[in-house]
Amino acid sequence: MKNKLPIILILIVIITLFIASFAIPFFFENNIYEQNAALKYAKPSELYILGNDYLGRDMFVRICYAIRNSFIIVICSIPISMLFGIIYGAYAGYSSVTVEKIMTSIMNIFESTPEFLLAILIMVVISGLDIKFFDGGIFGIIATVIILSWVKIARIIKNETKKIANNDYVLYSELKNARFGHIFIFHILPGIRRIAITTTAQKISSVIFLEAFLSYIGIGIQPPNPSLGIMIYEGAKYIRTYPHLLLFPAATLFIVILLFNILGELLKFENKIENL
């Protein structure tokens, strides 16, 4: 509780990035897809501050829009998988031995599926199903993230809940015939609050990485919708002649992931959590 300044600073940077990534594409909507043959591979200039890509599109606006896409995925997937993971983990940690064993076995089965392969399979299926909530493959990534990430959260929460459930105040509530809902809200939730927040911050960077990864191998966000993964893939082709096509998206992805990693580390330090 002593030094919250670094966390606040990082949060301010992230919120600024968040607002900018939504505001800039909103004001320059035409520049996202507009191609300009005269400006192919153009170097950074006053008008286009990060240059133009291989179709003459404005790199700066496209990078902002790509970050916006990443943020949309984070916002839509993380709360759902957190909520499910917390409730599942808390219930598994609190309930009797048999129920806990069954629930743990379900988690074990989920964990024994190779993560990236499952992601690829789900992505291939969902992109084929033609669901149109979000354009260009975003829905598929959201579903993949939710399916993959709740297990890890549930496992951490389960271990934490088990420690809390041994306390006397929980026993006292049980003697007063309190239901699971009551114990969950008044005893378990306050106890797991810190670890849940820290896990969320650490999950965000891995979600952004997963999006870039899937888009990089060509099954995530679909072009012309911009994504940092696609831009890195395209830019790598021109690394010898026009390095700015690769450098700017790669640096952006690095900085965004770094921001969330630093936030996670600071929260971990602040809350004194070891080995997460």
């Binding site: 990485f209 990864f213 992931i257």
Partner: peptide, 22 residues
Amino acid sequence: IILLISLPTFIIAVFLQYYFCV
């Protein structure tokens, strides 16, 4: 370590290949 963890493998691989091979 925190700088390296934030670098995705595909970025590392592309730059390694460019600098050391080309």
